[in-house]
């Protein structure tokens, strides 16, 4: 049975590549039972989006608007 620590490895991994079917299934099973990991998964997704937005705010400027 996969524990939280290992589940966070898969949550992180799926921000970087597609999980294998086996990986995706075991993560899904863990998330179904574990509220703390569901929050962690949301946080990793939010971090991913935050990075993109932080870069956008550095890159794009007023003079770049269409």
């Amino acid at each position: 049975m996969m524990m939280c620590r290992q589940a966070t490895r898969l949550m992180s991994l799926r921000q970087d590549r597609k999980l294998s079917l086996g990986e995706a299934l075991s993560l899904r099973m863990h998330l179904a039972m574990c509220g703390a990991c569901r929050q962690c998964d949301r946080q990793f997704t939010l971090l991913h989006e935050a990075g993109r937005r932080r870069a956008d705010s550095l890159f794009a400027s007023r003079s770049d608007r269409e």
Binding site: M3, C4, A36, C37, R42, Q43, L46, E49
Partner: peptide
């Protein structure tokens, strides 16, 4: 952040950050 058995430590358990749009 984790116990020896791989579960979250009580004080490290992730909590809700709310709606992403509000966070941003």
């Amino acid at each position: 952040q984790f116990q020896h058995n791989g579960r979250w430590q009580e004080e490290a358990r992730p909590s809700s950050w709310g709606e992403p749009e509000a966070v941003f």
